[in-house]
Write a protein that binds this DNA or RNA. Structure first.
Lengths: 225, 225
DNA sequence: CGGTTATTTGAAATACGTCAATTCAAGTGG
DNA sequence: CCACTTGAATTGACGTATTTCAAATAACCG
């Protein structure tokens, strides 16, 4: 729950009352096992765990559209989900709470925060496209690590949680597991970053950012590529 | 103008009055030369020509996010444009009309049609992601041709306009020009489709669809990959 | 501990990119 | 109508990134 609150606070200013409101939702949570399909009959807030939105092709190839972390919403755009054949799958145990009531409520910092996270998601998708289309495997992996670090509010932290299998990361980046594994070994050898035991530990942050090519922590002010 | 009207009519039902309204916009058009950056100080409707939204990296690599054809809108989401470092560039001579007034007007079939095209764009972006991440060059090219055919309302036509250089198509698909050229030669040899002189001519439509892997003409009803 | 799943490594195949040159198509000016 | 230019399409030869296949650890979990 702490992670969810941190993510939400980074997206909009929440009053103490709103924080209490979220905490009060605790008893209503729904739990999903790792691997299960998150059937959202309406807008939900993830308060715990990791998930991903994805599409699977008939022959088994999978492309992950985006990850979902605590403090982010799912099920807010069911029409688009259906049209894009997008489904949301739990990667770890996941807890959500139903925010259907919030959708039409007059004023709500909580809703604003979730909507802000959805807007961030839209923007991130463009980075994702460039990453898939024009970056090398090495650049893709570096950019991904920085994107997650930034997203988790760990921009300055040397270490942050990243409880993802290499298979998941490979399916985000459009790479084979084996090749991703080799790239990560390069990172380890060069002391850029090490991912182990569900944790990422950044070594040479500057070199990592250089490898990522695309800027990650955007302020909306910078113009360069 | 005819192309724009056809595209719009495919997106929403337009009354005769609304068609007249669009035609009346004729005198207000702005013209852009091929290659120029479309500086949209507000929502515009493309009524003629082809453009693309793209991002260029410092080292010159380019990824095209999407094409823009007559009857589609640009400049409707300037915040997202800026955040994603997205710019719109004319690929041919382009004509647009300003629709700023329409944005806040009470009821307008024209605005509904443009908003529908923006929603289609959002959905298409997910196909784009899967295409970039998980399809082979051969599959990418086949899917792209079918997507354009569908989008131009030429689903049943053996031939339709596609005035794009191979460089542009390569930058859509995240391929090198040379490799795309070889794939297109394969298509020509196998009689799947031929692109020449700004026109695409489909030979074996069934084989082309099979090569594309991803379904294109979506009804919202089918579930399969 | 035992069984399962994830990671790691090697060797080989292949898809795709780069470099460089040639051909082709479409003006443009004489 | 014909050089001449320019940009696009095409092709060959070659290099490299990435995938595939297969097997060997290593980490996790009940």
């Amino acid at each position: 729950m702490a992670a969810a609150l941190r993510r939400l606070s980074g997206l909009a200013n929440l009053t103490q009352a709103e924080v209490d409101q979220i905490l009060a939702l605790g008893p209503l949570r729904r739990r999903w096992r790792a691997g299960s399909l998150l059937q959202t009959g309406g807008p939900q807030l993830v308060i715990n765990g990791w998930a991903c939105s994805q599409r699977v092709l008939r022959d088994g190839r999978r492309q992950i559209y985006d990850l979902v972390v605590a403090g982010e919403g799912i099920g807010w755009r069911s029409a688009e989900d259906a049209a894009s054949r997008r489904s949301v799958v739990a990667l770890t145990m996941v807890e959500t709470v139903d925010l259907a009531g919030l959708l039409y409520e007059g004023q709500s910092g909580l809703r604003d925060a979730v909507l802000a996270s959805l807007a961030e998601e839209d923007v991130r998708r463009f980075d994702h496209i460039v990453r898939l289309g024009r970056l090398t495997a090495y650049e893709k992996a570096a950019h991904f690590v920085l994107e997650m670090q930034h997203r988790l509010g760990a921009a300055d932290a040397r270490t942050f949680p990243l409880p993802l299998t290499q298979e998941v990361i490979a399916d985000v980046l459009g790479l084979s597991i084996v090749h991703l594994n080799r790239v990560l070994r390069q990172f380890r050898t060069a002391n850029l970053v090490e991912i182990r035991g569900g944790m990422a530990t950044v070594g040479d942050a500057r070199a990592l950012a250089a490898a990522a090519i695309l800027p990650v922590g955007r302020t909306g002010r910078d113009v360069s590529a």
